[in-house]
Amino acid sequence: MEITDRCVGCASCIPWCPVGAIKMIGDKKATVDQEKCIECWVCYKIFQCPVSAFKPAEMVFPRDLMWNFAVPTKDWATTRMAGRGTEEVKTNEVTGRVKPGEVGLALDFGRPAISTSFKDVEKVFMALVKLGVEFEKENPLNMLFDWTTGRLKDDRLREVRAYQPIIECKFPIEKTEVVLNTLREVVKEIDTVVSVGLASTVRVDGTIPIFNILDRLGIPYKPNMKINMGLGRPLASIRVPDKVRW
C-alpha cells in the first residue's frame, strides 16, 4: 500500500493499521513503511480516508503473495478458497480428513495481528517434516515449501513478511506428545507468536480423546472450541467408539 500526495497529514489513518505500518513524515504527510506493511488493505478498504490518499502498490512479487495471505475475501488461484487455510475440520464429517485415531494441527503464525516472516514459518516446517507428519495438500503454504525438507522453495521469501499463514498437518494420536514437545522447543527460536489449534473427532459420549494427553503433558487448552455438529452430508467418517485404547 502507498499513500499519494493527496495526503493532508491528518493522521487519522494511523491507528487503523493492524501492524503499525503507517507513520507521519514530519507533520505534513503520512507514509507506509513497506517493510512492515502486510497488504491487508484495512487502510484502503475499511478506513475511510477523507481525501482518498491510499493507493494499492503494484501487485508484483512479493506483494501479491502478501496480499493473498492478508485479505480474507480473496480466493487463492490454486485452491479457489478464500482465507489463509483450508476447510480443515469445519467439513470433517463429510471429508473425513481427520479420522478417529488421528490429530489435526493448525498453526497460525503471527496471529493475532503480529505478522511473521516466512523464515520463522520455515523453522517450524522443517521441524515438523522430520517428525513425518502429513501436511494438508490444499494449504496455500504448500506452494511455497518443499514437503520433503520443509525448506522454502525460493530463498527470496525468507525475509518476506506474511499475515497469519497457517501450517496444517495431521498425525496419528500416538505422535501427539512428540509433536507438541518439538513445537514447544522450536517456537523458542522464532520472532513471532503462533496460535496453536488441535483437531480431533469426538467420541459418541462427547469426550475428546486428546484431552488426556494434553492433561498429562501439562498443556492447557481453552474451554471454547470450534465444534463441528456433524450435520453435513454425505457422511464420510465413522465415530470413535466410547471405549477405545487411548
Binding site: 507438541l180 507468536v193 469426538v202 481453552k222 470450534k226 456433524g230
Partner: peptide, 16 residues
C-alpha cells in the same frame, strides 16, 4: 445432536 469433530485452542505460543 452429538458433535462430530472439534478444534481446540492451545492458546498463543512463542514470543508472547
Amino acid at each position: 445432536l452429538t458433535p462430530h469433530t472439534v478444534m481446540v485452542s492451545l492458546g498463543i505460543w512463542g514470543k508472547t
